[in-house]
Amino acid sequence: MKLNAFKIFVYSLILGLFSFGAMAAGKLNLYNWADYTPDELIKKFEAETGIQVIVDTYDSNETLLAKLQASGGSSGYDLAVPSQHFVEIMIKEGLLEKVSGIKNMPNYKYVAEQFQGPSFDPNQEYSTPYQMGSASFAYRADSYSGTGSSMMEFFKPSSEICGKLAVFKSPEEVVNMAHLALGSSFCSEDPNEMQAVMDLLVEQKKCVAVYSSEGINDRLKSGEVIMHAHWDGYSQVGKWEGVDDLTYAYPKEGVVGWFDSLVMPKGAKNIEEAKTFMNFLMNPENMAILSNFAAYANAIPESVNYLTEDMKNAKNIQVPDGIPVVFGKACNKKAQSLIDKVWTKTMQ
């Protein structure tokens, strides 16, 4: 039989489709926070499974949400890592795929019982645990005489700190920290409480050098600022990187807790690969690689056997007894619009 041009065309088309399919089967697009994906982990995953991982990064839950909203199911990502309240919002907005059989994944048994079926995903249909930690503030202990025992040290800074203070760029954690300082509750719909939050922020602003959520450790290292809104694990990394006196504050009013999870955005193409990664990460040894890198705690108790000495002794991430960890919530429209108004007025 002779192959004519048409047949060659058809065969190559079929062949092409197959090879395309094979390529797609070996890929995983992960959309994660910056500085949150250790190379070691990705290399290990690629070596064990042959799946190629492509990592893209974002800087806040809001950015992730906006991106998923805007792309309407064609974001091109197979996995993303939102915090607890944003998982809730994304489920409500129909932005996530249901992941079948999370509870039957071989490594699911390693997840600590209190983190199985968390409040934001009670039936464990959408998410598996990534890392958890808190937001508060950190300071250079050598240049500051305070003890970081009150949130007011951050909002009403002493003259040592004034002008050398930096705050997160997005309102979410900052407003929650202000709520902790004032003793009001997150997502408040009470205008008087929000007025008090705004007064506090406006007062604090006089001493703020910069509002930024990036390059925090660099800024503290150079001494440009000596107090900065910060995350527990990230401040620990800063300490490891040579800022010895960098101290993360656990004020008596509490810290803002968060719990990040792996979820599958709507329209994900590589579903099996994503599930393979979810299962892979719940393995204690793999989860330990992540914690050793990002310096955050995790929901896999057995991972402690694989933690480095540095990580076991990481002071900045150990919550002292009696300090409340209050988890951020998904605010309704009214509360959210109050937060936006407070922030815009503060920044006007």
């Binding site: 703020v208 910069v210 509002y211 930024s212 922030w343």
Partner: peptide
């Protein structure tokens, strides 16, 4: 500028990325 005072560009970005309006 340290993001202390909003300008038009940052205000627009804020509405899309944070305020969700």
């Amino acid at each position: 500028g340290g993001g202390k005072k909003l300008l038009l560009g940052s205000l627009i970005q804020f509405q899309f990325a944070y305020a969700r309006n």
